[in-house]
């Protein structure tokens, strides 16, 4: 560059020049665009998401029985209740001692009152409750003594919430989709 002799370093480039800000901002943008795939690759992948929903044939569950299936790595109870068990659940719909007040109608399968689909994980610390046990004949968690009624609601013991009802769609008279 045929300039007159310049003392080097005497004229620092103006840091606040717009072009520098623009270039740095664009570079930061590129960095962000590179970082995003590196972060999102840890999110569930295609094959994991494919098993996010499963279909189940509820006609396989006999009267008064429960079947346990695996969904998203967790146990799911599909219970075909007897009319007495349904009645007992409905009787306590507005019981004053319910920690998490819910009616049986809000929890059972729409259109199929005897079927109950619940995530089989105690809401206390995650053990799998046993069916039919406890003072209400619903479920009993042996770990710390939580009692659930025939609608899966917590009645006694340290668990804070009712057994969770997962997202369910009724596909046909015999088929449901969980998740």
């Amino acid at each position: 560059m045929a300039d007159t002799a310049v003392q080097s370093g005497s004229e620092d480039p103006n840091r606040r020049d717009f072009i520098h800000i623009a270039a740095i901002a664009a570079a930061a943008g590129a960095g962000g665009m590179l970082a995003w795939p590196l972060v999102t690759q840890m999110n569930p992948s295609g094959d994991t998401l494919a098993l996010a929903s499963i279909e189940f044939d509820i006609s396989k569950v006999e009267d008064g029985q429960q079947v346990v299936i695996k969904w998203r790595g967790k146990p799911v109870f599909v219970r075909n209740r007897t009319p007495e068990q349904v009645a007992a659940a409905e009787k306590d719909d507005h019981a004053p001692d319910l920690k998490e007040p819910q009616t049986d109608a809000e929890r059972r399968l729409p259109g199929k009152a005897n079927y109950l689909v619940l995530i089989g994980t105690c809401t206390h610390l995650g053990c799998v409750p046993t069916v039919g046990g406890g003072d209400w004949g619903g479920w009993f968690c042996p770990c710390h003594g939580s009692h659930y009624d025939t609608s899966g609601r917590i009645r006694k013991g340290p668990a804070p919430k009712n057994l969770v009802v997962p997202e369910i769609a009724v596909l046909s008279d015999t088929k449901i989709k969980i998740g």
Partner: peptide
């Protein structure tokens, strides 16, 4: 390459 999010890119 097929299932991991952006796995093909990485």
């Amino acid at each position: 390459m097929r299932d991991v999010n952006y796995g093909w890119l990485i």
